[in-house]
Design a protein around this nucleic acid. Structure first.
Lengths: 221, 221
DNA sequence: CGACGCGTTGAATGTTGTCAAACCGAGTGG
DNA sequence: CCACTCGGTTTGACAACATTCAACGCGTCG
C-alpha cells in the first residue's frame, strides 16, 4: 500500500492530485464508529492499519455483519446509492483510516480515466465479494463457512506480507457467527472440532493453521 | 422506462448522446445466454422485457443463482472488476435487452457528471441488494425467505405498473431454491403451507397474493 | 471479592435436507 | 388416439445438522 492508502497504480502527477483530497484522520480506538447508519454519506474510506467491521440493521432490528476490512481495503461504498449511510462501520481494534471525500473523488475522476476505472472496479469487486458470501451462506455447512473465512483472512494477510498461518482474529466469535449466519455456539464448536483434528491451534483470538491443505479440504474449495 | 432502457434522468442532449451508444439486440428466447462465465467483459445490460437470471459457479462446481432481473433493471456489473465475466446471464423466458458497451459508457461518463454519478449509484444499489440477500440468507427461515422474495417481485411489478397481487413467476422452483439457499422440496412445501393458510393461491407459476399483510407478517418485515 | 463479558460445552429440540415415490402436463411416436 | 417419456413439482418418512437453552470456566475491571 502506498502513501495514498489506495492500492492503485497511477502516474506520478496523478498521485499528487489524488493525494491532495485524501484526509488522514486521527487514530480510532476499539469500538469507535467511522460512520453510523443514518449519517450523511460523504466519503469512502481505506484502512491503513487495524481492522474495521461494517454492519447494517435488518428489518427485524437485528445486526447483520456485512464485512471485515483489513489494511489496504476500501469500505463505505454501499452509501453511494443514497444520500445517507445504510450501514455502520466501527473499529474492531485501534485503527487508522484514510477518508476520501466522494464529491472530490467524482470531480477528479472526470479528468483521470484510470481513477474512474479503478473505482468502478473496486465497486465491482465488492459485488463479487458479496456474491461469494451469498454462495457460501447458501450452499455450505458451518465447518465450510468457518474454514473459508479463515482461509480468506490468511490469504489477505499474505498479501500484506504478514504470516498466513499465524494471526490474530480481530473480531469476536459473535461477529464471526453473525457474518457467517451461524450462532456463537456453532462457531465455537467448529473451532473445537478443528483443534481436535489438529487442523488449527486456537488460543482465544490467536489462530495458527497447522494443516493448510486440511483446512482447504474442510472449506471444500 | 424511457427509450434508453435506462431509468435515468438526464438532460435532453445527454439523452441523445447516451442513446447513440446503446444497442438494442434481437429478442432472446428462453434459455438463451446473454453472456457466459469466461466471456470477455464488454457491456452492461438493461432488461427491456422478459426476465433474466444471473448465476455463477462456485468452487465446488455448483450453480449459485445471484439474481433475477425484470424490465428496467440493470445487470452485468459484476464483470467490471475483471476483463472477463465471472457469472452467466440467461433469459428465463422470451426477453429483450439493451446492451451498453462499457468502454463507450466510461468515455461518456467523463463529460457527463450525472451519468457517472448514476452508474456509481447503480453499482452501489447492487451492493445494497446483495447485502440484503446476505442478511436474508443469514438470519431468516425458509418461510421468511420465500415470502420476502414474493414481496420483492410484487413491489417491482408495482413499479412497472403491473399487478402487485397477481403475477407469473418466470423462474422455476429450483431457481428459487438455489437463489434462497433452500432445496426445491423446501420451496415447494413453503408454497403449500402458504396456500393452506390462504395467504397465496398458487397454480404452477401463477401466483396470487390473497393476503398481503399476512405475507408481510410471514416475511417478518 | 463479585459482576460482567466472552467463550466453551452439553443435552434436547427442531427446521431443513435427503431419499424415495408419485403426480401432472406437454410433447412424442407408435 | 393412446401409451410413453420427460421435466418440473409435490408429498412423505427419516436423518442430520444447527439452534436453543442451560450451565460453567476464565479473565478483567470495578
Amino acid at each position: 500500500m502506498n502513501a495514498l492508502c489506495l492500492p492503485i497504480a497511477l502516474e506520478l502527477d496523478e498521485v499528487d492530485r489524488l493525494n491532495e483530497i485524501v484526509r488522514r484522520g486521527r487514530p480510532l480506538h476499539k469500538d469507535d464508529y467511522v460512520y453510523n447508519s443514518g449519517d450523511k454519506f460523504r466519503s469512502v474510506y481505506a484502512v491503513r492499519s487495524g481492522s474495521i467491521k461494517t454492519s447494517s440493521v435488518n428489518d427485524q432490528g437485528l445486526e447483520q455483519v456485512t464485512g471485515f476490512y483489513l489494511p489496504g481495503e476500501i469500505f463505505g461504498m454501499d452509501g453511494i446509492a443514497h444520500t445517507h449511510h445504510l450501514s455502520s462501520a466501527l473499529a474492531l481494534e485501534t485503527a487508522a483510516i484514510c477518508e476520501i471525500p466522494f464529491d472530490r473523488l467524482e470531480e477528479l475522476s472526470m479528468t483521470m480515466p484510470s481513477l474512474q476505472r479503478h473505482f468502478f472496479q473496486l465497486m465491482s469487486k465488492e459485488i463479487n465479494n458479496d456474491q461469494k458470501l451469498i454462495s457460501l451462506l447458501s450452499k455450505n455447512s458451518a465447518e465450510e463457512r468457518v474454514a473459508t473465512l479463515l482461509l480468506s483472512i490468511s490469504a489477505r494477510n499474505a498479501t500484506r506480507n504478514l504470516s498466513n498461518i499465524r494471526f490474530r482474529l480481530p473480531m469476536s466469535r459473535a461477529d464471526i457467527g453473525n457474518y457467517l449466519g451461524l450462532t456463537v455456539e456453532t462457531v465455537s464448536r467448529v473451532f473445537s472440532r478443528f483443534q481436535k483434528q489438529s487442523v488449527l491451534a486456537v488460543d482465544k483470538k490467536e489462530i495458527e493453521i497447522l494443516d493448510v491443505p486440511g483446512l482447504q479440504r474442510l472449506a471444500n474449495t
